[in-house]
Amino acid sequence: MKILIIVSLIFAGIFGAQFVHSTEVSTENRAVQLQGIDQKTQVAEQSTNSKLDVNEATAEQLVAVKGIGPSKAAAIIQYRREIGGFKTIDELIEVKGIGQKALAKLKLVLKV
C-alpha cells in the first residue's frame, strides 16, 4: 500500500510539473504574440501619422521625399496654389512629371 501511495505521489509530481511548465510556456508565447500584434499596430499608426501632408508641405519638405526633386516640388506647390489645395492624393497625377508609378510610390509617404 505504501508503495502505491509513493508511486502515485511521484507520478503526480512529474505530471503536475509538466503541466505547470507547459502552462508557463504557453503564457509566455501568448505574451510574445500579443506584443507582436501591438508592435504591428504601432508601426501602422506611425506610418499613417508620419505621412507628409501635400497641402501643407514646403518645397524643402517635398524635396526630402524620395522621387521628388526641386522641379517636381515647385510643380506640386504651383498646382496646389492654382487649384486651392489637393482634395485627394490621386490629384497628384495632374502635376507635370508625376505618372502612375511615381504616384503609387508617393501615396506611401504623402497624404491630403
Rank of each mutant, 00 (worst) to 15 (best):
residue 40 K to T: 14
residue 40 K to V: 13
residue 41 T to L: 14
residue 41 T to K: 15
residue 42 Q to C: 03
residue 43 V to R: 12
residue 44 A to S: 14
residue 45 E to A: 15
residue 46 Q to R: 12
residue 47 S to K: 15
residue 47 S to M: 13
residue 47 S to V: 06
residue 48 T to A: 15
residue 48 T to R: 15
residue 49 N to T: 04
residue 49 N to M: 12
residue 49 N to Y: 03
residue 49 N to G: 03
residue 49 N to P: 01
residue 50 S to V: 02
residue 50 S to H: 02
residue 50 S to N: 15
residue 50 S to I: 00
residue 50 S to D: 14
residue 50 S to L: 05
residue 51 K to A: 06
residue 52 L to W: 00
residue 52 L to D: 00
residue 52 L to C: 03
residue 53 D to S: 08
residue 53 D to A: 07
residue 53 D to H: 10
residue 55 N to Y: 12
residue 55 N to I: 05
residue 55 N to M: 10
residue 55 N to H: 09
residue 55 N to G: 10
residue 56 E to H: 07
residue 56 E to L: 14
residue 56 E to Q: 09
residue 56 E to V: 09
residue 57 A to G: 04
residue 58 T to L: 06
residue 58 T to R: 04
residue 58 T to P: 10
residue 58 T to A: 07
residue 59 A to D: 10
residue 59 A to R: 08
residue 59 A to C: 04
residue 59 A to Q: 14
residue 60 E to A: 12
residue 60 E to Q: 09
residue 60 E to L: 08
residue 60 E to C: 02
residue 61 Q to I: 00
residue 61 Q to L: 00
residue 61 Q to M: 00
residue 62 L to R: 03
residue 62 L to T: 02
residue 63 V to C: 01
residue 63 V to S: 03
residue 63 V to F: 01
residue 64 A to Y: 00
residue 65 V to P: 01
residue 65 V to E: 01
residue 66 K to T: 14
residue 67 G to P: 13
residue 68 I to N: 03
residue 68 I to R: 05
residue 69 G to F: 13
residue 69 G to K: 09
residue 69 G to I: 05
residue 69 G to R: 06
residue 70 P to Y: 06
residue 71 S to I: 08
residue 71 S to E: 12
residue 71 S to P: 04
residue 71 S to W: 05
residue 72 K to Y: 01
residue 72 K to P: 04
residue 74 A to H: 02
residue 74 A to S: 12
residue 74 A to N: 08
residue 75 A to L: 08
residue 75 A to F: 11
residue 76 I to D: 10
residue 77 I to F: 13
residue 77 I to K: 07
residue 77 I to E: 13
residue 77 I to N: 13
residue 78 Q to L: 14
residue 78 Q to S: 13
residue 78 Q to Y: 10
residue 79 Y to G: 05
residue 80 R to K: 08
residue 81 R to Y: 07
residue 81 R to N: 11
residue 81 R to M: 03
residue 81 R to W: 00
residue 81 R to A: 11
residue 82 E to Q: 14
residue 83 I to R: 12
residue 83 I to F: 05
residue 83 I to Q: 13
residue 83 I to G: 03
residue 84 G to F: 11
residue 84 G to V: 07
residue 84 G to P: 08
residue 84 G to Y: 07
residue 84 G to K: 06
residue 85 G to R: 02
residue 85 G to F: 02
residue 85 G to M: 03
residue 85 G to W: 09
residue 85 G to I: 00
residue 85 G to Y: 06
residue 86 F to C: 09
residue 86 F to D: 10
residue 86 F to H: 06
residue 86 F to P: 04
residue 87 K to Y: 08
residue 88 T to K: 15
residue 88 T to L: 10
residue 89 I to N: 13
residue 90 D to C: 09
residue 90 D to L: 12
residue 91 E to H: 11
residue 92 L to W: 06
residue 92 L to G: 10
residue 92 L to N: 01
residue 92 L to Y: 08
residue 93 I to R: 10
residue 94 E to I: 00
residue 94 E to M: 08
residue 95 V to Y: 01
residue 96 K to S: 12
residue 96 K to N: 06
residue 96 K to C: 01
residue 97 G to D: 02
residue 97 G to W: 03
residue 97 G to L: 03
residue 97 G to F: 03
residue 97 G to A: 05
